[in-house]
Amino acid sequence: MSRYGVDPLPSLPGRITIWEVGPRDGLQNEAAILPVEVKVELIERLADAGHTVVETTSLVHPTWVPQLADAEEVLRRVKRRDGVRYPALVPNERGLDRAIGLGLTDVAVFASATESFARANLNRTVAQSLEMFAPVVARAREAGLGVRGYLSMCFGDPWEGEVPIPQVVAVATRLLALGCTELGLGDTIGVATPGRVTALLDALVGAGVPIGRIGVHFHDTYGQALANTLAALGRGVTTVDASAGGLGGCPYAKSATGNLATEDLLWQLAGLGIDTGVNLDKLVETSTWLAAHLNRPSPSRTVQALTPSAC
Results as ranks from 00 to 15, higher is better:
residue 202 D to Q: 12
residue 56 T to G: 14
residue 289 W to F: 07
residue 21 V to N: 02
residue 283 L to W: 11
residue 220 D to W: 04
residue 106 D to S: 14
residue 221 T to V: 08
residue 242 A to W: 06
residue 134 A to H: 09
residue 208 G to M: 07
residue 115 E to Y: 05
residue 79 K to F: 03
residue 232 A to L: 06
residue 181 T to E: 10
residue 189 I to G: 06
residue 88 A to D: 07
residue 11 S to A: 13
residue 106 D to L: 07
residue 261 A to Q: 06
residue 67 Q to E: 10
residue 232 A to V: 10
residue 225 A to T: 09
residue 66 P to Q: 09
residue 3 R to C: 11
residue 256 A to H: 03
residue 236 G to A: 05
residue 27 L to T: 07
residue 62 P to I: 13
residue 33 I to D: 04
residue 237 V to K: 07
residue 133 F to Y: 15
residue 171 V to T: 07
residue 51 H to K: 03
residue 258 G to L: 11
residue 27 L to A: 00
residue 32 A to K: 14
residue 252 Y to A: 14
residue 292 A to L: 15
residue 220 D to K: 09
residue 22 G to V: 10
residue 238 T to H: 07
residue 305 A to R: 14
residue 219 H to K: 07
residue 170 A to I: 01
residue 184 G to V: 03
residue 27 L to K: 01
residue 298 S to V: 14
residue 23 P to L: 00
residue 209 V to M: 10
residue 58 S to I: 12
residue 2 S to V: 14
residue 116 S to K: 03
residue 255 S to M: 13
residue 37 E to Q: 02
residue 74 V to L: 00
residue 306 L to E: 08
residue 303 V to A: 15
residue 295 N to Y: 06
residue 131 E to M: 01
residue 35 P to Q: 02
residue 25 D to T: 09
residue 88 A to E: 04
residue 189 I to P: 01
residue 189 I to L: 13
residue 41 E to L: 00
residue 280 L to T: 13
residue 44 E to S: 00
residue 75 L to H: 00
residue 141 R to F: 02
residue 120 A to D: 15
residue 202 D to E: 15
residue 295 N to Q: 13
residue 161 G to L: 10
residue 254 K to S: 15
residue 201 L to P: 11
residue 102 L to A: 09
residue 164 P to V: 01
residue 130 L to T: 12
residue 35 P to L: 04
residue 114 T to R: 01
residue 74 V to A: 00
residue 82 D to G: 11
residue 26 G to A: 14
residue 200 L to A: 01
residue 193 T to P: 00
residue 251 P to C: 13
residue 267 W to F: 15
residue 30 E to T: 10
residue 56 T to R: 00
residue 142 E to Y: 03
residue 256 A to Q: 06
residue 105 T to V: 08
residue 283 L to R: 04
residue 266 L to A: 07
residue 199 A to V: 01
residue 67 Q to M: 08
residue 25 D to G: 09
residue 90 V to W: 10
residue 146 G to C: 02
residue 6 V to A: 09
residue 209 V to H: 12
residue 172 A to T: 04
residue 218 F to W: 10
residue 157 D to M: 04
residue 238 T to P: 02
residue 72 E to R: 12
residue 243 S to G: 06
residue 24 R to Y: 02
residue 35 P to R: 01
residue 120 A to E: 14
residue 220 D to E: 07
residue 298 S to Q: 13
residue 194 P to T: 07
residue 149 G to Y: 10
residue 72 E to L: 11
residue 284 V to C: 12
residue 199 A to W: 05
residue 179 G to A: 13
residue 252 Y to V: 08
residue 45 R to M: 08
residue 107 V to G: 08
residue 37 E to P: 01
residue 46 L to K: 06
residue 246 G to L: 06
residue 90 V to E: 06
residue 256 A to G: 11
residue 167 Q to I: 00
residue 235 R to F: 06
residue 36 V to N: 00
residue 164 P to H: 03
residue 12 L to N: 08
